[in-house]
Design a protein around this nucleic acid. Structure first.
Lengths: 183, 183
DNA sequence: TGATTTCTGTAGCACCTGCTACAGGGATTT
DNA sequence: AAATCCCTGTAGCAGGTGCTACAGAAATCA
């Protein structure tokens, strides 16, 4: 029992590494099993089917990502829009989180087509990121603390996408413009 | 000669429809050929290989999209950030352009992983959209006409991505916030 | 000890992938 | 009429996909 759980757990960790490195396109049973140090036969013994393998693996990746973000940028103190934007953007470009970008866009495009588990996982991640942001953003003067969060998310995601298509310069220009405007 | 070109042309149009509807995941030779009313054998007679099929098809889609955007929102007169944002966002949500969203994200995620033809096509589309925006945005007071364009693009793309993962409400909140801020 | 349950490798299924060899029909050129 | 070309269907290749049947080894229970 515990042995089985241990191996299942180890497989998840190594599959998470593989999916982060290679993307969902390469997330087929045999390569996943190879990365996990086992066989496709055993993967389907640990998990019901490929869908469960993917769901569990993506969940693990999302957990890792949020943990990393929490560690790098603690909840207290609250920060201005400009400061949090710069900190979050720098963190997302760091070695440990950069690999997440192509996967995140892959999830988003799958979600846009209504695929599972893309839709559920992507929605969950976005909700987590919304909560993460809301708790860290300092409300502007009189305003509602949650008013700025959507704009913050959209800005980060937009810069993300600009970077993905090789227009990182536009992302930087966006960050500059946002910072100079919110001060 | 001309006959061959006609059939090639017709195939491109129908494959563009198919890719818009089903995505790149379903863009394999046999389904593409079926959609084009021919056989995989003939597709590889008209085009060198699958890569050329995809490149030509995606180019056609990009051309269609820019044409549609030009038609819906003419170059003159220049518009304020808020007005152009609302017009462009409404147009991207229209029947004719909505189908482009999942494909665009698919291109972006492929580009983020360095795949071809994703990278080239996505970059080209983004450059086209940047030019489109720059020409239509009214500079703010003293400012450079091109200063606002990156922020505009990032905003649209961010709202796009929020919508893709089922958080259209956050996209709307972002639009509202941007409009109220730029006035 | 024997019986039963848990694990796991081998082999295979039916289907899809991009792509190609071959052959024949039809039109065009000599 | 003969020879040459352009077109296109049939069949197939080698490899990959998710998944499963079967059987034997290993561990657990009686």
């Amino acid at each position: 029992m515990t042995l089985r759980d241990d191996r299942r757990e180890a497989a998840i960790e190594r599959m998470a590494d593989h999916v982060l490195a290679e993307g969902l396109g390469a997330a087929t049973l045999r390569p996943l099993a190879l990365a996990a140090g086992t066989s496709d036969r055993m993967l389907l013994y640990y998990f019901a089917d490929k869908d469960e393998v993917l769901t569990v693996t993506l969940d693990r990746i999302a957990t890792r990502m949020i943990a990393q973000l929490d560690r790098a940028i603690p909840a207290e103190p609250r920060r201005s829009f400009a400061v949090l934007l710069q900190q979050a953007w720098a963190e997302l470009a760091s070695d440990s989180l950069r690999a997440f970008m192509p996967l995140w866009l892959e999830l988003a495009s799958g979600a846009a087509r209504g695929l599972q588990p893309h839709r559920d996982v992507a929605g969950k991640i976005m909700d987590g990121f919304l909560a993460w942001t809301t708790i860290r953003l300092q409300p502007e003067g009189d305003g509602d603390p949650a008013r700025l969060a959507p704009l913050f998310l959209a800005s980060i995601e937009g810069m993300y996408l600009l970077t993905a298509v090789g227009r990182g310069d536009l992302a930087e220009a966006t960050a500059q413009e946002l910072v100079s405007r919110s001060q």
